[in-house]
Design a protein around this nucleic acid. Structure first.
Lengths: 137, 137
DNA sequence: AAATAAGTCTACTTGGTTGGTAGGGTAAAT
DNA sequence: ATTTACCCTACCAACCAAGTAGACTTATTT
């Protein structure tokens, strides 16, 4: 399941996509328009800065804004940052890989099946970008 | 992410698949062979009875055994019982549906994308059965 | 009938995660 | 210097995951 955090992140980013290249947008504005608790949203946006999709300006006239083309910001990357792994098992995760004890990956059928699931999922989430999230309203 | 519970469930069932129609198997045997904490496993097996894939006999010579052909027991159904929803959002879940507030499903692109992900996932997990989990060792 | 084997049931614990909230600090513009 | 707005740290309640403990019930064997 996607966390609230991820859903909020995507909603906020989709709002910023609508306002792309129109100057900084207040956290409070996003919060109000997308019905996201303000302080929670602050925290999420801050985290998103680390994947280089947005930046902020302080002081009057400040706010958040995308610094990357919305069409180049992949849904998968947002989810990975905010939610964590997309795969169903650590041992099949590309970005959060962890070896699994008590299971030889070479001949574990569960492993193989979960790789298939991962690929099918990524095939969708890595092709979709913020632009695909629009017409959301 | 799949819970330990689900992984244990699938491992236990795959062991029972190997022993299909060879009489009851002790929880303690499964526990030892598959390295699953005994009391935790007890609990999981008990829960699995409710989806009608296995039954048990008490007393000496007792144990657990499959009552359905392994080739007809779908991985997806096991996961649903033990782990919960497979979909990434409640509003796109087939078996655990919940309407999402603050998002009109009719024109929420996130919703549509997650339906795609769900279908891609189910296309794999509903086609695979316990038999496909073998050769696991 | 008693002993033993085995699953059943209830309850508890421990640790981590989720979804927040509170409040002061810092930087930038006017 | 004041105001605006993001930054940072800390905290909290509720929930869930993973597992443990122990008594209870049912079935078999002697």
């Amino acid at each position: 399941m996607l966390s609230k955090r991820s859903q909020y992140a995507l909603k906020a980013l989709s709002y910023l996509t609508e306002k792309y290249q129109k100057g900084p947008v207040l956290i409070s504005e996003i919060s109000k328009k997308k019905k996201i608790p303000l302080k929670f949203l602050e925290n999420i946006l801050l985290e998103l800065k680390s994947i280089g999709v947005l930046d902020s300006k302080k002081g009057k006239g400040g706010g958040y804004f995308l610094i990357k083309q919305p069409a180049k910001i992949r849904v998968a990357d947002v989810i990975r940052k905010v939610n964590g792994p997309i795969a169903m098992l650590p041992c099949v995760s590309l970005y959060f890989y962890e070896r699994c004890k008590d299971c030889d990956e070479k001949n574990c059928m569960l492993h193989d099946m979960m790789i298939e699931v991962r690929d099918a999922t990524l095939n969708i989430l890595e092709k979709r970008t913020l632009v695909d999230l629009l017409s959301d309203r």
